[in-house]
Nucleic acid binder design. Structure first.
Lengths: 109, 109
DNA sequence: CAAACATTCACACATGTGTGCTAAGGTTGC
DNA sequence: GCAACCTTAGCACACATGTGTGAATGTTTG
């Protein structure tokens, strides 16, 4: 049985064991399994857990965001549709003005 | 006062007036305003509302997803970090197996 | 000016997501 | 074989998102 168990991986990664199971369930960090069904975390998994932590602290990216970003990578039609919509929105310029008003709101608060 | 008011635009777009205000608030479809503060929807806005509807029905894309996709476009560091993380995840292969197990689960249900 | 409509604000509720905890049962390693 | 750990399933809760509805107030237009 080679690799860390879920609580060992939790200790080394800073996530809770519960969260590791959650990430497994959602396909974001999927460890190997022992014959008896124990999760076995190796170096690759620990690195991905560290990367996740980085994404969260630096950018506020949650698991749900990554699930959607993964769809964008893997579904070209979806990517094209979303990109097209956003591009049109930028052309019209309304986004820029909205962004400015958002900053005004923040200053006023 | 040129353009449709919020309930007129709602009728023509199929969204509720409430939702149009929500989309405005989140910067996704931002109409012009009359001197007195009324929202004024023009052709560009109606088109974007139709596009939104299409994104939702074809792909299940919610407003929150678009807000994140917009961040991906506008924050190169974020895009690089997310893309790198997902690429590493794909290389390790675990995603593929997870996807297979997901299909098995669906078949079993 | 008055009727018809808009505005913002707020309460309310359903659903989804992230997280902790417990229960009942299986695995591992000494 | 036993202690220590794991598994899944479930309840519970807080927070965010999407949506309806109502109140108090302001705008438009005939």
């Amino acid at each position: 049985m080679n690799g860390l168990t879920v609580t060992q991986a939790a200790a080394r990664s800073g996530w809770s064991a519960r969260m590791l199971r959650y990430l497994d369930e959602h396909g974001l960090v999927v460890p190997a399994r022992s014959g008896g069904g124990y999760r076995l975390y190796g170096l690759a998994e620990l690195n991905r857990l560290a990367g996740l932590r980085d994404l969260r602290t630096r950018f506020g990216v949650d698991p749900a965001h990554l699930v959607f970003a993964r769809r964008l990578r893997r579904e070209p039609e979806l990517r094209a549709a979303v990109d097209g919509w956003l591009a049109a929105a930028e052309d019209s310029g309304s986004w820029i003005e909205w962004e400015q008003r958002k900053h005004e709101r923040l200053l006023a608060a």
